[in-house]
Design a protein around this nucleic acid. Structure first.
Lengths: 408, 408
DNA sequence: CGGGCTTAGTCAAATAAATTGAGTTAGGGA
DNA sequence: TCCCTAACTCAATTTATTTGACTAAGCCCG
């Protein structure tokens, strides 16, 4: 439904715009700079600054001397005013981070996933971990805005439920948002791991409203997220980016879906590790259900390749080539100005994959004649998903969204 | 840049929202209905309605009697108040339509493309055709808001230039917007054929802000457009949807890019026709550069298949199967709630393709367990692109865009 | 070292939008 | 005919941004 807007919305939106600018600026912003950046009048910015100061969200820090005239008063975010918890429910590991308003990780925590534990028990363990995470710092609980939790897709966003991630047995339709909300007493935001990672990336990169990129997420499986005009695209059910069965051209491993060369099966760590074992590159056997062990072996495989093992390199390069084919299609379809790669499985193989990607995609992109398409590894490491989950909370509460102006 | 908003913007936006609702409603809307649909207050809607009446854009038509109380006054768009020209620059044909504000085609015109004529001469012919299109009706020129022109991608949107469509020789970097603007004295909007078609589809379908669909455009080649939240996604350079080299799995024709089974080469009419000729299904030879002839033969091929010719059917079904593979990937990536097919080459093969698509994609979509993904043929026929080009003009001038609330 | 200049930012009044509440209009039913 | 309801409008109020006058804080220069 196309809905109207009103003054209250405008006010809230403008305040969010200003707060967001201050929050994202490395070293604070003066009121004049905000005027330039927002297009708002002097007085409006002055009023909004006053309001945010009263709310305790921002602080007046030093002054910046300009060649002439009165020095500018720098406004900075008060990092200690609000916090957000981010959790990453990965089949191989549970990660928790506590972020302050400036986006700094204040505290973090890891927990092993107990495969036999059912959802109920796991939710209780997550709630306990979050409780510990907060209490181990001296932060007042009331300053915590909420909990963001990232899980493998697909998800039922409206119900806040995990539907049945391939690697988590017994997790068919678990209403994570409600149960975790009850257990913690905090607002809970559930989202896909890839979408969370894209939020983290969006936070780290320059915030420009004209940002268009796809985020390719490598974890136990593969997923993607799409960022258009500086916002993570949500799709009709918040399940954008299910690229596990993307076609990667001819040949390849036989996928469970009955076809060959699906992207997921071509680059999943567990598959590469199994091939590595059967080719005698890695020591075996590997228990495929023990994802911690798979991850370790995957790191070993990458290390071997880096050390010059030809067979290990060949395995990884075949995977990267298939990834390149999928990325080419994604870039051509979406007309992005960059593809960012990240996720738990990215760091060990990132450098190698990027080389293959650059070579494979040179002159391959349809929009190549109009503009460049950058290929980048995320600067964020293995915590990216949990950090992103916390960013979702911060963004939801604080950030200006284009739809935020509309009524209802 | 994240920019603020102000009251003036809100006012203009709300007015656009109301006008858009009235324009899209089949039989008009009363003020109360508008209040419900927009979330605005009684008085605001009353004021906006007054303003639009004064501008002559809407009319008070009849009254609707409700069980009790004062009857509702129906507001309808005044179709004759404004018009827009839509042009479709296709390698095989030039199409022109004149749309009124209600979206009805008031007048249309076709022109053969003269292959040997260069861009300059063609632009002059287009301008003449537009002049004729308007003057052949008794519509005042001042009521024409502008000209939308759809061309095969990729395009340079900022310069309003066609870059070099595969089928139009001599059209490297032609600044169509400027030259046509000078020739006609009207504002010109250049866009990709697939994006234009998506605009037309968006106009015809229920306008719901939660619309998410991909439009697959079959013309001389293949393209796509993406609609998210009721808006056509523009990408970083307005070149979303270059899916000509999408991978469609194993095998297939050898593409000019050196790989097999690219989507474009797999379903382009010219390729299917050539195969039809070489297999003796169609009479030959066919001059591949004469796209009118190719189109005719393509229709013949479809007719043969419909008449029961096994070889013709096999050709088309192989093409449809490859299209299905690409569509699966697109749907999974974008989490759309539907895929709409259309474009000049769609009508003859639509029914047949849809059957194949339905069968091929049943149980194939990752989001299938969350929600249905509809596969639909566009109800708009061969004029869809030209109509869409005109819709772009109307939308640009009249429709509320989420970004329209922001300053600058 | 004080006046002039420039830039940053605030106070107060004006403006413009939506909202609120009272009042009017137009029908149906008892 | 009177009462009730729903649709709509008029007038006053609220709330946001904007505009214009003013203050604050530094530098330059005579």
């Amino acid at each position: 439904m196309p809905r109207g807007s009103n003054l209250e919305r405008v006010s809230a939106f403008n305040q969010a715009v200003v707060l967001d600018l201050v929050r994202r600026s490395e070293s604070g912003m003066s009121r004049v700079e905000l005027i330039g950046a927002t297009g708002l009048s002097t007085q409006t910015v002055s009023n909004i600054a006053r309001r945010l100061l009263d709310l305790g969200l921002i602080l007046e820090s030093g002054k910046v001397h300009v060649p002439q005239g009165k020095p500018r008063t720098t406004l900075i975010i008060d990092p200690k005013s609000k916090y957000a918890v981010g959790a990453h429910l990965d089949p191989s590991m549970l990660t928790f981070v506590l972020l302050d308003l400036a986006g700094t990780v204040v505290h973090r925590k890891h927990l092993a996933v107990v495969a036999v534990a059912g959802p109920n028990e796991t939710v209780a363990r997550i709630a306990d971990a979050i409780e510990d995470l907060i209490s181990e710092t001296d932060i007042e609980r009331s300053r915590v805005l909420g909990v963001g939790i990232a899980a493998p897709g697909p998800i039922e966003f409206d119900q806040g439920a995990v539907v049945g991630p391939p690697m988590l047995t017994g997790w068919e339709r678990v209403e994570l948002r409600e149960s975790l909300g009850k257990a913690t007493g905090l607002p809970v935001f559930l989202d896909k791991d890839s979408a969370a990672a894209a939020h983290a990336e969006l936070w780290v990169r320059d915030k420009r409203s004209d940002q268009n990129f796809a985020f390719v997420y490598l974890g136990s499986g593969v997923g993607a997220a799409v960022v258009m005009n500086g916002e993570v695209v949500r799709g009709s059910s918040n399940n954008v980016g299910e690229i596990g069965h993307f076609s990667t051209g001819e040949g390849g491993r036989l996928c469970g879906c009955g076809r060959k060369g699906c992207l997921g099966i071509s680059i999943m760590p567990v598959e590469l590790v199994n091939d590595g074992v059967s080719q005698g590159i890695l020591p075996g056997p590997v228990d495929n259900s023990d994802l911690r062990q798979v991850t370790d072996h995957f790191h070993k495989l990458a290390a071997l390749a880096d050390a010059g093992d030809e067979s290990a390199s060949a395995l990884l390069e075949e995977a990267a080539a298939r990834l390149a084919r999928a990325v080419e299609d994604i870039a051509n379809l979406l007309d992005v100005d960059g593809i960012v790669f990240g996720g738990p499985s990215w760091p060990p193989v990132g450098t190698r994959y990027l080389e293959v990607l650059h070579t494979a995609l040179a002159n391959r992109l349809a929009i190549g004649m109009i503009h460049q398409v950058e290929l980048l590894g995320s600067v964020l490491g293995e915590d990216i998903t949990a950090v992103g989950a916390a960013c979702i909370v911060l963004d939801h509460v604080l950030a200006p969204r284009s739809g935020g102006l509309l009524l209802e």
